[in-house]
Each structure stands twice: as structure tokens, then as C-alpha cells.
Amino acid sequence: MSEQPVIEARGLDLTFETNDGPVQALRDINLSVAKGDFVSFIGPSGCGKTTFLRVVADLEQPTAGTITVNGMTPEAARKARAYGYVFQAAGLYPWRTIGGNIRLPLEIMGYSRDEQRRRVAEVLDLVELTGFEKKFPWQLSGGMQQRASIARALAFDADILLMDEPFGALDEIVRDRLNEELLRLWAATSKTIGFVTHSIPEAVYLSTRIVVMSPRPGRITDVIESPLPRERPLEIRDTKEFIEVAHRVREGLREGMSDAV
């Protein structure tokens, strides 16, 4: 059971047909993600990191190769509600309260009212937004909105959390705090997390594995296993191991740039 990878991609290709001809967004992606992993995807824009996440989420269809999520096709996994998805913008509905936004997927998935209430309270507590249930999104700061959108993705029992640059639009101070909280959440829920970012420190700080990607065509150039322990205070970023991993990521990114023609 624990041997089966949560996400498994084999020879994955994806080509978009655009007005300027075909664009190869993904080429020959091979990757397997184990349960409980925190995998970051890092690379310059156009390297296909977001596209890969969207393929996992059944938001894009690959043109070749196979991909399984929990041993199923992405579509079957989506229908089985296998994952929660967090976008760069919070994407909360302005006409619903914070509580109403978190309740939305629960309503769609047909949870009972009592269960909805219980889960909303639970995840609000998890992201430390208790007391803001009745507020509307526009009454909250950007960081709080993003926390609410994470709570929304955690509200139902998905064991995978897919996050597409969730903190990209926030300032660094807020971002640091949310990173810490995300690690705490990850430890508390033991979910598998796929995390797209363009920040090297963020990727190194959060991940157990870092997937370095490069553009034209989008492909994986390096997969780095992090030697850092699972328990990570913010100060870990000043340690030698941390700086070494960051250095390796930077090297990988530079290599990807140089052999792109």
C-alpha cells in the first residue's frame, strides 16, 4: 500500500496548438511522488510547472504518455475528490462569507449540514482564522484570504494538496509566516503536497523533494532529495545544508537555461 506512488507520470508529453504553431509545454516527464511527500516544482516561467500540476488535476489533457493519481486516471481521481487545489489568487467568491466559501466544496460534494459546520470550524482553526467565519473576503487582507483558500482546499478529505504559486502575490513577511504555517499543516495532516513556486528559498525550506524544470520545451532537469529534517524552524535557512541545497537548485536552474537552444 505504502509502496504505491501517489502520483506517477511516465513519458508525459503535452503540446498546445497556438496561433504561432505548436508549443511543447511538457516533454517526456517521468516522476513519481510518494505518499506524504512535499514536492516543489521550480523553474522560470514557461517551464511547464503549472501545466504539470494542471495535468495532475485533470485541468489539462496530456498528448502522450501516462499519468496516474492514486493509481487511477486523473479524471477518476478528480471524481473521487482526491485532491484540493489552491491557485495563486485566493479566488474566493465575493458574495459568500469566509465560512460560506469554505463550505462551498462541501455543499457540492453533498456533505450533511452538521458535517459542513464541523469541518468549517475545524479548518478555520487549522489556518487560524477562527472568528472570521462571518466576514466577507474583501474585508480581509491578502494573506488571510490566501489562508482561507487553503482552508477551502483542506475542508474535504483529499489526501493530495496541489498548490500553484499560492504565495506568489504576497509580500515576503507574510509569505514567511504562511510557509511556516503550511509546514505545520503538512505535519498535522500528513497530506501529499505538490507545490509550484519560483522562489528558491521557499522551495528549499518547504520541500522533501525539489523538481527543477526548464523551458522550451518544458522538462525536468533535476530532482533533488532534501537532506533537511522534517521539523524545520525558520532559522534552518541559515544552516549550511540549506545553503547547499539552494546552491544545487540554482545550479540546476542555470544548467537548464544554458542547454536551452
Partner: peptide
């Protein structure tokens, strides 16, 4: 984005 979200929830 919001339509994608609906899709991921299989609405």
C-alpha cells in the same frame, strides 16, 4: 480560475 475550481470539485 473559479471555473477550474468547480471542475476540480467535480461540480
Amino acid at each position: 480560475m473559479q471555473r477550474d475550481l468547480m471542475h476540480t470539485w467535480s461540480a
